[in-house]
Design a protein around this nucleic acid. Structure first.
Lengths: 347, 347
DNA sequence: TTGTACGCGTTATCAC
DNA sequence: GTGATAACGCGTACAA
């Protein structure tokens, strides 16, 4: 074995345990995988031998022999947004329940890179994948022919878990209406109706129409950089102040980070959150609670989503292990209902 | 192979490629590991065969054969603090440079659980480990006899990368002094002088003594929960206001999250950041830039730390692969100097 | 430049 | 309850 130091004592294997105890390798294997099939007395003997020889198990060999890696691959855009970090945290925590190990890659929204990561994952014989990044179309994902669950992204051809964005935005919009706002404003980036987040835009328009409320949808890319976003939001506020003077403005922001920036810009402009402004964010990320004036928001129930995703994935992976697997005919899509969190930026 | 569907077509292996092309398995292997050793013409033939048979590489088998997994294990307390998430992000990003894959576990500060995770990692024959959690003493970590690098924790017996906490706290303290503060206050939790963060307490005391500045060290556990911390900080402010009236108070907080809470409590008490308060945080986490009044802080240079950690780990892992490894005689400790970020909570 | 033969450490099968 | 033997898919001396 290349790189094996001459001085280094060889690994202790089943062979050594077998020789030491007088049993066969098979029996040693059984000790681990089906202990009941050997006598208690002999179990003890083997246990002692393991101790004496300081045996360390080798799961790589086991994988090669039985084909089950217990690996799940994860591809996530990055970990700078709390939302993603929290989701990964919850995913990793499912190890306790299912025992699957996670090989994690950050893709940084780079399609080619993410493709390479997927090949690498497949080469390591992962049993399934959880995809949070959104550069690779679900049709391509499906073609890899591995159990997959995506979270909060385009998902036509694969199983997925998404927030009920429509329901979340509906609650946010209604909260602003109930606050007596004269005009509702929703900021969001440009997107197709294939991504789950589009439900927010749709709900905003629907509810406003239903209730006959004056409203404005502002499509804008605020970017990832704080100062850029701050400048753009400052300009938007100036425009709103000019356009809707003496009217109570209900602002529904696309996430808490931006909601916080808007709040802060308003506070620094007027000394406090003016009475003609109401704000609701989205995500219930820490910033919403830690803002000077705690921000009303929509909680995405990240732990539930992560659990549902793993459950959906495990189901698919288990199906594959059956003698006669019956793959899903159509991809399953699970929807998690978010909950409104009322804080101080609304009444 | 258990769980292998009868209908499922067997995996394409080197054997199949060999039969298809008329070469031996060895030649196929060489095509991947030492392509120059076969003629260009035959390389083409093999390439075509791989395409025709839709070959998928199996790195698990390769591991068993050559003993190199290219796995690095990571144990991190959790991903809820931005600091940890950002660090993991930077660690995972080194894949591009070194090609090591990461098996990630969140330990939640649970010693026994983390021990089990380590066993699991060892069973998968990881080549090295990066430890961010701090429950397991470095002496025990060293005993696992695997290349290890810890980040920002007790590290007597293993290699590590730490922030130069002393230098960071020194800059923070001096900034407050230069701001003309009459009394300096440092909040921090109780800790031994074995953890790197203790350097902050030490620097604070040292610099204040050197400069002859009145100061107070408040040892307090503010907890992880926002509202609890808020209440405790509110009480502390009331005490400070009473104890040091008409004196300019320079507050050095243990992190940005707490600094932000203090800032917000002050603002909600006095309408703005009072002129007799100056605040410096630690970490340069997003909250420090996103606060109503952007908070001065100390940037830990997370990307540098992550890079240094991997470099240190790769060095150790490479050493092990040599014919005659010379392990480090003493653990190496790398120190990364943080940089002061001056914003609006100081002049 | 290419092939032979064996090893890596475990599990599965079948026989006893 | 236990053992012999053949996989699993690839790497690598050694030989040719």
């Amino acid at each position: 074995m290349k790189g094996l130091n001459i001085m280094e004592k060889k690994n202790v294997t089943f062979k050594d345990i077998a020789e030491y105890t007088g049993f066969s390798k098979t029996t040693i294997s059984r000790y681990f995988n089906n202990p009941d099939s050997i006598t208690l007395e002999n179990q003890e003997k083997i246990a002692d031998a393991l101790e004496a020889l300081d045996y360390k198990e080798n799961k790589v060999a086991r994988i090669l022999a039985n084909g089950q890696t217990e690996y799940v691959g994860v591809i996530i855009p990055n970990l700078y947004f709390h939302y993603h970090a929290a989701m990964l945290n919850c995913i990793l925590s499912t190890y306790e329940q299912y025992g699957y190990k996670f090989l994690v890659f950050v893709g940084n929204e780079h399609k080619e890179t993410e493709r390479e990561y997927i090949s690498e994952l497949l080469a390591y014989k992962i049993e399934g994948m959880i995809i949070l990044s959104y550069t690779i179309p679900s049709e391509e994902l499906a073609s890899y022919n591995v159990p997959i669950v995506t979270i909060e992204r385009e998902d036509k051809f694969v199983c997925s878990v998404n927030t009920d964005n429509y329901a979340g935005a509906k609650q946010a919009t209604e909260l602003l209406i109930d606050n007596g706002c004269d005009v509702l404003i929703h900021l969001n980036s440009d997107m197709t109706d294939e991504v789950p987040a589009y439900g927010r835009v749709k709900a905003f328009k629907d509810i406003c129409a239903e209730r006959g409320i004056k409203n404005e949808l502002i499509i804008v890319d605020l970017g990832a950089e704080h100062n850029t976003a701050k400048e753009k939001i400052t300009r938007i506020i100036d425009e709103l102040d000019a356009k809707y003077p003496n009217q109570k403005k209900g602002i529904f922001m696309p996430n808490d980070t931006y909601a916080n920036i808007m709040l802060n810009v308003l506070i620094r402009k007027h000394g406090t959150l003016p009475d003609d402004y109401r704000i609701v964010g989205f995500d219930n990320s820490p910033i919403s609670a830690e803002a000077v004036i705690p921000i009303s928001t929509v909680d995405q129930q990240i732990d539930t989503m992560a659990r549902e995703a793993m459950e959906l994935l495990v189901t698919q992976m288990n199906e594959r292990k059956k003698r006669r697997p019956e793959p899903l005919e159509v991809p399953l899509h699970r929807i998690v209902t978010p909950v409104l969190v009322r804080r101080e930026t609304t009444d």
